[in-house]
């Protein structure tokens, strides 16, 4: 047992795919709630969240949820009439479900961005397309390089009295000039890099990767578990037609297959949080024995 972030990039990637696909495809209050709570638990356990972020997320949720009943007037239960438009219970509930789903995906992916560093993504996709991976990794390296160089050029220009930052016009014109200088420099620099790479034999053999991620037995086990849970949740939903009806009236799916779908997805959703807790407990336990 390891933290999710310590597994092979393939496993991590497929996990995030599986956990976000289910609630997006099958819009359902229970799935959305499970996804949101699983994502939030993981987010908090990883120590990513600050309290302020959750105010922002809460506001986002509310705003997105209330858009739907304002523009959608389907549904049989009219809560009240605003202007000439009925505001219905069904549309309001749909709004909350859809926006919790979207918010949960945002949370999942914010953790995903932290865990899947560019290095891991390059490992994952570099084998599919080595040339694109090269462009990606070169560009990633160039960004900080260009920023420092641009600052140097800008400082030099200011010292020479070529532009001030007092007014917007001058600032933009100065920025544009620095940008122009940077373009020439970057292109020439790039050509030098390319020649240097060619001289060292780039493109002759197969490309190797800096980081080595082994696909271990633990990865296989976790991946199997992820795929089984995903298959159970998605398979039962599609085959038995478990779907939550919002319009015209709320109708939950039959309870037995729905329970199977929800429990499979609950396990999937809380998997990373559970791994995180398990690791923490194990760590504390081992410490206590010293």
């Amino acid at each position: 047992m390891k933290r999710l972030e310590d597994y092979n990039p393939t496993t991590i990637f497929l996990y995030f795919l599986a956990v976000t696909v289910v609630p997006t495809v099958f819009v359902d209050p229970a799935l959305a709630a499970l996804s949101l709570s699983g994502a939030a638990a993981y987010y908090i356990l990883r120590g990513q969240g600050r309290l302020r972020d959750f105010y922002v997320y809460g506001g986002l949720l509310l705003a997105m949820a209330l858009i739907n009943p304002l523009f959608r007037h389907n549904g049989v239960t009219v809560l009240f009439v605003m202007g000439n438009n009925p505001i219905t219970l069904e549309a309001t509930i749909y709004g909350f479900v859809a926006s919790s789903m979207i918010l949960s995906v945002i949370l999942w992916f914010s953790t995903f961005s932290r865990i899947m560093t560019s290095e891991k993504l390059l490992y994952l996709f570099g084998r599919v397309s080595p040339k694109l991976a090269l462009i990606l990794s070169m560009a990633l390296r160039y960004i900080p390089l260009f920023s420092t160089q641009a600052k140097r050029v800008g400082d030099a220009q200011k010292v020479l009295g070529l532009y001030k930052e007092d007014n917007i016009i001058d600032d933009i014109r100065g920025g544009a000039r620095v940008f122009g200088v940077m373009v020439s420099w970057a292109l020439e620099n790039g050509i030098i890099t390319a020649d240097s790479m060619a001289a060292r034999g780039y493109g002759i053999g197969r490309r190797s990767s800096f980081a080595i991620y082994k696909f271990t037995r633990a990865d296989a086990a976790l991946l199997l578990m992820i795929l089984t849970l995903f298959g159970a949740a998605a398979g039962v939903s599609v085959l038995l037609g478990v779907s939550f009806t919002f319009y015209p009236a709320i109708k939950p799916p039959p309870s037995l297959p729905a329970a199977a779908v929800y429990s499979a997805y609950a396990l999937l959703s809380f998997l990373p949080a559970a791994l995180e807790v398990w690791e923490c407990v194990k760590w504390k336990y081992l410490l206590s024995k010293i």
Binding site: A139, I143, F146, F179, A186, A194
Partner: peptide, 21 residues
């Protein structure tokens, strides 16, 4: 290789170019 690198320079410039207000 040169063409590849020029494309990555352009990519990097378009992302890094945000320093202009």
């Amino acid at each position: 290789t040169r063409r590849l690198i020029i494309v990555s320079v352009m990519v990097a410039l378009s992302v890094a170019g945000r320093f202009i207000p």
